[in-house]
Write a protein that binds this DNA or RNA. Structure first.
Length: 454
RNA sequence: GCCCCCAUCGUCUAGAGGCCUAGGACGCCACCCUUUCAAGGUGGAGAUCAGGGGUUCGAAUCCCCUUGGGGGCACCA
């Protein structure tokens, strides 16, 4: 459909498949690779002559005919049918036009569509996931239009012409096409082509169990990518919607899926897209990545989180992969999406961190205690000194400080944590301090003390 | 309205007549670990297998009906 298709949509689809790691032996070009396969071209707009030839052939055999009904006539038919509680269908007004009738319409300049004769029969087929399916062709809505009045072909027709010419053996698609299948079978038979095997997959559902839609759910692969989901997890998650291995394993890579997936084990009931489960799987797969791999993938998310704070008016330093790589061990099991690095580490790249004074005070403490604690902690850390500024060296003296003053370690550590990061949930404190560095740790403690005194 | 499909914990599912007093996973709740948050570990709540009839010695599993849900019926794909 020329009006609805754009190169941008096409690119989205190809990019999505490529990102997921899905490749093909035959089909259009992707990611710089040329199109491959003996039956190209693989774009319908470039195959118009094929559809045209197929339509002419059906016309010549009287398996299809020209129809001159106007939209007004068809609308009127439909309204009458609705009023009579009948299913919408084409009444067949032009099914038996004489040559003279046709000539008259043509002379009057009426543009014709091409309709395929549907006839009356019970079409049966053996669907790989659903088994035997039977549909009466009288329920199909009458003779169907295969070519528009402007000469362009319609979907049901194009897919059959393509599948026939490309010698497609298996048509695997969503359940929403199940009722359309008899139309396709009729078309294949009329063209003298072998009818392929069909497998109708369960639909992916919105939480309200309706067919997943843009309106109610996030449906673009690119959006999940942008939110920090990784393809390993996404593919795994999708595969588990309607399919299971039959064992209790559920973490599968694409290549494992390639070996183990069978249509026979696909379920027929629809499956709700459960984002929490996706998130869990994403965390599982993130934990499998190497530090380098994870650093590379997470880098853009850190950069944009920092940039966002910069845009909000804070003074920031742009992070580099060298900054991020050593931090990976302390954040990897804390992130369920790549975007998590932003929330956990952005504070490291803010130069003028300002913390709400009220936030600095731990729940069971008051302002004075907090000020005293931060002052004492600053002294202890300064005493450790720049040379020994390491996680192992910091922990013992700070614990000792808490004990001497009768403070709960958790409270003391929390006050330092907030003073230095502006957050209550962070990676382990001492690693965080080290990542921040000696100078900046002291500076932030001083800034926090000043804020409390103000 | 007509046609088609579907039906096991909230969700994803295992289950192809006895192994099921229905198993696993996500989520949830406890507890352990623990400086916060996670991760991890242990345990728990959670499904009279939509309901009703059959068939059978025996049914979540087979058949029928009902109910519920979904999808399809375009000069969209």
């Amino acid at each position: 459909d020329v009006a609805r298709s754009t190169v941008a949509y096409e690119q989205d689809i190809l990019d999505g498949l490529h990102w997921l790691g899905i490749d093909w032996d035959e089909g259009p070009e992707v990611a710089g690779q040329p199109a491959r396969g003996p039956y190209g071209p693989y774009r319908q707009m470039q195959r118009l002559e094929h559809y045209d030839a197929a339509a002419k052939k059906l016309l010549a055999q009287d398996k299809a005919y020209y129809c001159y009904c106007t939209r007004e006539e068809l609308d009127a038919d439909r309204q009458a049918q609705e009023a009579a509680h009948q299913p919408p269908h084409y009444v067949g007004r032009c099914a038996r036009l004489s040559a003279a009738d046709r000539a008259a319409k043509e002379a009057a300049g009426v543009k014709a569509v091409v309709r395929f004769r549907v006839g009356e029969e019970l079409v049966k087929f053996d669907d790989i996931v659903r088994g035997q399916v039977e549909i009466d062709t009288t329920a199909l809505g009458g003779d169907l239009i295969i070519v528009r009045s402007d000469g362009t072909p319609l979907y049901h027709f194009t897919v059959c012409v393509d599948d026939a010419e490309m010698e497609i053996t298996h048509v695997i698609r969503g359940e929403d096409h199940l009722s359309n299948t008899p139309k396709h079978i009729l078309l294949f038979r009329a063209m003298g082509a072998t009818v392929p095997q069909f497998a109708h997959l369960p639909l992916i559902l919105n939480p309200d169990r309706t067919k997943m839609s843009k309106r109610k759910s996030q449906t673009a692969v690119a959006d999940y990518r942008a939110q920090g989901y990784i393809p390993e997890a996404f593919v795994n998650f999708l595969a588990l919607l309607g399919w299971s291995s039959g064992t209790e394993e559920e973490i599968f890579s694409l290549s494992e899926l390639g070996e183990r997936f069978t249509l026979e084990r696909v379920q027929s009931g629809g499956a709700v897209f459960d984002k929490e489960r996706l998130e869990w799987l994403n965390g599982q797969w993130i934990r499998k990545l190497s530090d380098d791999e994870l650093t590379e993938r997470a880098m853009p998310f850190l950069a944009s989180a920092v940039a966002a704070r910069g845009a909000a008016g804070e003074a920031v330093r742009t992070p580099t992969a060298d900054d991020l790589a050593p931090l990976m061990p302390m954040v990897r099991e804390r992130m369920s999406t790549l975007a998590g690095v932003g929330d956990m580490l952005d504070f490291l790249f803010v130069d003028d961190l300002r913390v709400e004074p009220s936030m600095l005070v731990p729940k069971k403490w008051d302002r004075a205690t907090t000020l005293a604690a931060l002052t004492a902690a600053r002294q202890v850390i300064a005493d450790v000194g720049e040379v020994s500024f390491e996680a192992d060296e910091l922990e013992a003296p700070l614990r000792q400080l808490a004990e001497e003053r009768g403070w709960k370690v958790g409270d003391l550590f929390m006050s330092i944590r907030v003073a230095v990061t502006g957050k209550t949930a962070t990676p382990p404190l001492f690693d965080t301090l080290v990542a921040l560095g000696y100078e900046r740790t002291l500076a932030r403690l001083d800034a926090a003390r000043a804020a409390l005194e103000a």
